[in-house]
């Protein structure tokens, strides 16, 4: 499986959010999108998820334009995770997770198959949310909810996983555990995973490929070592940084902004 993005342009009214974005992503690859606020990370992710319609440009999955797929076909291919979920009518975690199997079922099948339940079971265990199944969504902490939402994407079993800030709200342990799991999931299923993230250290730890964006443009694409360079980060973020190499892991230490805010 392969995703090819060609010349995407997205406009929010008169503001251009994506400029001529082109990108290629291969299966089994964990791709991280980084960049400052308003760089277009989420917009790129949402455009791939078909939530936003691009004004110009095409996204191909295995050579077929995304817009040519039906909603039903897409539901088996794409899963997009962000943290906006309606909780106004009280649903339990279990009820929520069961809906993620719908793409694999007939619309009128009344009962859940043993196989579907086993998948829910296995993934709830992996993400350590088994004990939350009977809880209401609005009774979860933000970290718990985040795990539930990621579990939902896994349960849906899509080949393309799009995660918007999956590590926000998670504590140190879960940040690492969940990204570990996402990486394993991507490798084992030969799937594609694109993650928009602010945490540069996590990106350097797990990324196979890093896409750095600024002002709606893709500035550079490459391996973590090619992207986490003091000059590039300074240009994109406007911050002086120092790159540390700890046992082969790259850590970006922010030093000071180029322009200080005046009181």
């Amino acid at each position: 499986m392969k995703i090819v993005i060609k010349g995407l342009e997205v406009w929010y009214d008169s503001i251009q959010a994506l400029r001529d974005a082109s990108l290629e992503i291969n299966e089994g690859e964990l791709t991280f999108i980084i960049g400052p606020n308003g760089a277009g990370k989420s917009t790129l992710l949402k455009t791939i998820a078909l939530i936003i319609k691009p004004k110009v440009g095409v996204i191909y999955i295995d050579g077929k334009a995304l817009s040519k797929f039906s909603l039903k076909e897409l539901s088996k291919i794409l899963a997009y995770v962000d943290y906006q979920i309606s909780k106004s009518l009280p649903s339990t975690v279990f009820e929520f997770l069961l809906t993620a199997r719908y793409p694999h079922q007939n619309m009128l099948t009344f009962s859940m198959s043993q196989e579907d339940l086993e998948i829910v079971d296995k993934i709830s265990k992996q993400l350590n949310i088994s004990h939350l199944l009977d809880r209401k969504l609005d009774q979860l902490s933000s970290g718990e909810l985040q795990r539930v939402l990621i579990a939902r994407a896994f349960i849906q079993g899509s080949k393309v996983l799009l995660l918007d800030e999956p590590s926000a709200f998670l504590d140190l342990k879960y940040k690492l555990e969940i990204l570990d799991l996402v990486k394993k999931f991507t490798k084992i299923n030969r799937s594609i995973c694109i993650i928009a993230i602010h945490d540069l250290y996590l990106a350097s730890l797990y990324a196979d490929k890093v896409v750095i964006m600024s002002n709606g443009e893709i500035v550079a694409v490459g391996r973590p070592r090619e992207i986490f360079r003091e000059d590039l980060l300074e240009k994109v973020y406007g911050v002086k940084t120092h790159i540390l190499d700890i046992n082969g892991r790259i850590a970006v230490i922010p030093l000071e902004p180029l322009n200080k805010m005046e009181l």
Binding site: A49, L50, I51, S70, L71, K72, E73, L74, S75, K76, L78, A79, Y80, D82, Q84, I85, S86, L89, S91, E95, F96, T99, A100, Y102, P103, Q105, M107, L108, Q156
Partner: peptide, 23 residues
């Protein structure tokens, strides 16, 4: 009754319904 799956998917937001294949 025949619509129970789209209705369940719809509860969590338009985006969820879409991702599960319902308009």
């Amino acid at each position: 009754l025949a619509l129970f799956k789209p209705l369940n998917a719809y509860l969590y937001g338009d985006e969820f319904a879409k991702q599960l294949g319902f308009n």
